[in-house]
Write a protein that binds this DNA or RNA. Structure first.
Length: 952
RNA sequence: GGGCGGGUAGCUCAGCUGGUUAGAGCGGCGGUCUUACACACCGUAGGUCGCAGGUUCGAAUCCUGUCCUGCCCACCA
């Protein structure tokens, strides 16, 4: 039966879904043990587990490049270790994303004309669940599309029953240990979402603003006044004091007296506190404990009242003069300033750069607001984490005594970032005033205010339901995320999964999440399991565009992974820019129109993954442009074609007959493969993913395709059955290992090629070593180096490569077309030169398009020369070109060699070098000089001779 | 204010435990429809390694200072 034709290109659109389905059908991504502990794969069930948990993407999210990068990295690791025999498990899941999700559904309700507050808590939550059940798995689908090898049977959601249970257990446990408390504190308040935010949810950026200098008259002498500087004049209604520095002589006599709060006409004390900085502003600062975290502390120290002047939505409340009530904070500010101006109490206004905190979600400036919130006391948890990572507290702070202990960060430098945060930790506000999330398991007595905290509804509440009400707040989303490594495996139950797969192996994530999530997971691991949740943390760089600007939705400069997989029209390419409306919108649009006037043709998941991995460096950014993905596509195509050449040869080879032994070039290819295997393994071990791709690329493109494949063509196309089978055995086996090495990065195309390569190799029985252990490449093994490195073999082969290159250079130099077969004369200098060239005459003739090679003692007059360390090459140029051209070329060559020689000589002229450098380096330099001198001499001789021949 | 990353060919980056002539990919240029691949093949040009000092026989690589750039942290009223 004739084999099926080999397609010209990899049809990823057709193949990707088909292959995905095949992986699912064969359940290759499932761990060796099922969650109930039963064994699915007896061999792997005894192997060491390799476990990764996905950082659960938000259910509201769509896959962006950051996910694509992170999930590709995780897939590379998971697939690699699965193939390397480990019991690999990658647990997928999603995050309920409290505020984000509620906002999405709120918008939906708004569109329907429904006010969610009127709809009520229960109905709103129902609507959110409906939304989540309909759209919440979209991102999971996208993960499948890019080839992620997650164990989908273990998919989790942070609001699942089990995870909810874990959250309640964690809360109660910490509460009982005194690590959760409730208190009135200044929190970051988002007036749009009307909820508290943790410090980490606030983005601070310098913005242009104003500094207002306000006059506060003295009670004792209303004609005199103190000038306070503020950027938030509208909070003055909540002022309860003004403070000066205790050592500030300008104001010393006023301390203890009163100032009059303008507009309110209330006396407020003038106090001395070190918070007031004499260098800043006027040295006098207004104290507003309910609206500023520092003032709050000053207030505590001086036992001052806290006057909250705002409502939840940042409008002014009834504590302010009637005219201001209900006004938005910024409207009130304007009005207030006008009034102060009129009353002569506004001394001056200056431009001022200030850091404004904005909600990471609504982007609106946060308000500092005094309210009752729940907090986790972080210091004891941080201390535990520091100790677990080998730190001890000394007089100089925390010092790492055992660098191998605890979690290893990659790149290493993030260890210090982590340390710094832990050593300066602040308490974590965990309550949020929204509905979508894990409700706080606390009940308040309506009259006494007593608080009961319990995993389930407490008996006393059940007995007297009217007397109690459950806390209205829900927990910060991260309060469920930090339990992820435990909760996905069923904690607090003691489950087989927890026993076998916890702690996990590697956590891979973006570095901006190190505080939000990584550190807190460590805390939770130690607090609830007494173990850290993973051994390694890999932090990938952030994705930036071609200009080095971080990709983000709001900047409109992102690349949608689906564009790469499905393609995009010009309009589709422009859409994110038009939606974001950034300030450089026109420029971005112009760039797109110029580069992709006809849209962007899909390149497929493999090309995307390849480009991502190839682009990874340890730097701050991974810079990507859409065009970079075309390079990935080229690589996939190259692999496809090179593999296709071997596969088609295998498929038309009749079965039976022994292969010839390995040739020198076969052994060279195997040596190059070994070296690539070492690089890939080392890249995995050191989390240097870029290195993996950078090792594979030249191996596939140069070593395999350009040299091995080309060299073997005479054997492949010849009539010598044994030689042909020998070549097929070597090429087929190396290709198989190459596909294995590539598979973690480009799973689809390798799986597709495997499906034709493996059966053909099996049929012919040409495997160099063991037959594959699986039908699917994804379940096969990862190769190990076969032999020790052999530098001499590589050196011998390099002579052959240089020999061919030398002829190609001559051809290019003199425009001798490939169709003109030439005969070269060859004088070997290195003992291996002659056998290398003569041993594969056919191949060399094919590569260099030669008529023949003649070994000679020396050159004849009038012949062009290529000098190499290990051979000389002569060509009777007169037959092909004007000799004057060759003289000119030699002049250039001589100049270059002269430079080389003087550099080498200068080194040896330096007595310091000769005396102080290690002897082997000196000898090396001497050998080098001798070699260059001889080469130069010959160049000069042949130049003189040729010049004569040309002239005569 | 403190800390971190980066500044090497037109672009994106390797190299940086100091030692032959600083590399790759893309792009450029010239050539080739050579029977796997024009998403290819062959050849080729292009760099005072941010700047200034220092250590050394020898510095892209180590040290000091400095400039540019990106990021993180911190109580800038």
């Amino acid at each position: 039966m004739a084999p099926a034709p080999f397609p010209k290109r990899f049809d990823f659109r057709e193949a990707e879904p088909r292959i995905s389905q095949r992986w699912l059908d064969d359940r290759v991504f499932e761990a060796a043990r099922a969650p109930d502990g039963s064994v699915r794969d007896p061999v792997r069930a005894e192997a060491e587990p390799f476990v990764i948990l996905i950082p659960p993407p938000n259910i509201t999210g769509r896959l962006h490049m950051g996910h694509a990068l992170n999930d590709t990295v995780q897939d590379v690791l998971t697939r690699f270790f699965r193939m390397d025999g480990r019991d690999a498990l990658w647990v997928p899941g999603t995050d309920h994303a409290g505020i984000a999700t509620q906002t999405v559904v709120k918008k939906q309700l708004d569109a329907e004309g429904i006010d969610y507050r009127e709809l009520g808590r229960e109905k709103t939550i129902e609507r959110i669940w409906e939304w989540r059940n309909k759209y919440g798995d979209a991102i999971i689908e996208q993960l499948r599309k890019i080839g992620c090898s997650c164990d989908w049977s273990r998919t989790r959601f942070t609001m699942d029953d089990g995870l909810n249970r874990a959250v309640r257990r964690a809360f109660v446990s910490l509460y009982e240990r005194g690590l959760i408390y409730r208190g009135k504190r200044i929190v970051n308040w988002c007036p749009v979402d009307r909820t508290a935010l943790s410090d980490d949810e606030v983005e601070k950026e310098d913005e242009k603003g104003k500094m207002y200098h306000l006059r506060y008259p003295l009670e004792s002498d209303p004609n005199r006044h103190l000038v306070v500087a503020t950027t938030r004049p509208e909070t003055m209604f909540g002022d309860v004091a003004v403070a000066v520095h205790p050592d500030d002589d300008r104001y010393r006599d006023l301390v203890g007296k009163n100032a009059i709060l303008p507009l309110m006409n209330e006396p407020i004390p003038i106090i001395a506190d070190t918070h007031a900085d004499p260098e800043k502003g006027t040295g006098v600062v207004k104290i507003t404990p309910a609206h500023d975290p520092n003032d709050f502390e000053v207030g505590q120290r001086h036992d001052l009242p806290q006057v909250d002047v705002m409502n939840e939505d940042a409008t002014l409340n009834d504590r302010v003069p009637v005219a201001y009530r209900g006004l938005d904070r910024y409207v009130a500010r304007k009005k207030l300033l006008e009034q102060l101006e009129e009353e002569g109490l506004l001394e001056k206004v200056e431009d001022h750069i200030l850091a404004i905190g904005r909600s990471y979600r609504s982007k609106v400036p946060i308000e500092f607001r005094l309210s009752d919130q729940w907090f986790v006391k972080m210091e004891p948890l941080a201390r535990q984490a520091l100790e677990a990572n080998g730190y001890e507290e000394t007089e100089d702070g925390w010092v790492r005594k055992d660098p191998s202990a605890g979690v290893a960060f990659h790149p290493e430098r993030f260890e210090r970032v982590y340390l710094h945060w832990l050593a300066n930790i602040r308490d974590w506000c965990i309550s949020r005033q929204i509905w979508w999330g894990h409700r706080i398991p606390a009940w308040h007595h309506r009259e006494t205010g007593e608080i009961l905290v319990s995993e389930e509804v407490p008996d006393r509440v059940q007995q007297e339901p009217e007397a109690w009400s459950q806390d209205e707040d829900v927990l910060d989303t991260w309060f469920s995320s930090w339990l992820w490594p435990l909760s996905v495996f069923g904690w607090p139950e003691s489950t087989p999964d927890l026993e076998r797969y916890y702690p996990t192996s590697v956590l891979s994530t973006a570095k901006d999440i190190i505080f939000f999530w990584v550190a807190r997971m460590n805390f939770a691991g130690l607090a609830f399991s007494e173990r850290l949740p993973y051994r390694h943390v890999y932090l990938h760089s952030t994705i930036a565009d071609e200009r080095g600007v971080t990709m983000s939705k709001s900047k409109g400069n992102g690349i949608d992974p689906l564009t790469l997989i499905e393609g995009a029209t010009l309009d589709e390419l422009k859409r994110p820019v038009l939606e974001a409306r950034p300030s450089n919108m026109k420029e971005l649009l112009r760039r797109i129109e110029k580069n992709f006037p006809d849209g962007f043709e899909a390149v497929g998941a493999d090309a995307m993954r390849w480009t991502l991995v190839y682009s990874i460096t340890e730097g701050e950014h991974v810079r990507l442009a859409l065009s970079r993905f075309l390079e990935g596509r080229s690589f996939v195509t190259k692999l496809w074609n090179g593999a296709g050449r071997v596969i088609t040869a295998l498929e038309r080879e009749p079965a039976g007959g022994d292969p010839a032994p390995l040739t020198e070039e076969d052994r060279w290819l195997l040596a190059r493969l070994d070296s690539t295997i070492r690089d890939v393994r080392s890249g995995i071990d050191t989390f240097d993913f870029g290195r993996i791709a950078h090792a594979l690329y030249p191996f596939v493109w140069n070593d395999f395709c350009s040299w091995a494949l080309e060299l073997s063509k005479p054997r492949l196309d010849g009539d010598d059955d044994a030689a042909r089978r020998g070549a097929l055995r070597a090429l087929g086996s190396v290709l198989a290992d190459t596909l294995r090495l590539l598979h973690p990065v480009v799973p689809f195309v390798t799986e597709e090629l495997w499906s034709r390569l493996a059966p053909a190799m099996n049929r012919l029985g040409l495997w160099l070593d063991d037959v594959p252990q699986a039908d699917l490449l994804a379940a096969d093994r990862m190769p190990k180096p076969r032999t020790a490195p052999d530098p001499e073999l590589e050196a011998r082969f390099a002579i052959l490569q240089r020999f061919v290159s030398a002829i190609r250079q001559l051809r290019a130099q003199y425009r001798i077309k490939d169709s003109e077969r030439i005969t070269v004369h060859f004088k070997p200098l290195h003992p291996a030169a002659q056998p290398m060239v003569e041993g594969r005459q056919d191949a060399v003739k094919f590569l260099a398009k030669l008529e023949g090679v003649e070994v000679v003692e020396g050159r004849s007059a009038g012949m062009a020369v290529q000098y190499d360390r290990d051979f000389e090459l002569y060509l009777d140029l007169g037959r092909y070109i004007d000799l004057n051209d060759e003289v000119a070329r030699l002049d250039k060559d001589i100049a270059k060699t002269e430079k080389e020689m003087s550099a080498a000589a200068a080194k040896l002229d330096n007595p310091n070098f000769v005396n102080k450098a290690p002897p082997d380096k000196v000898q090396q330099a001497r050998d080098k000089l001798t070699e260059v001198e001889q080469r130069l001499k010959k160049l000069r001789e042949s130049r003189a001779e040729l010049a004569e021949a040309a002239g005569g």
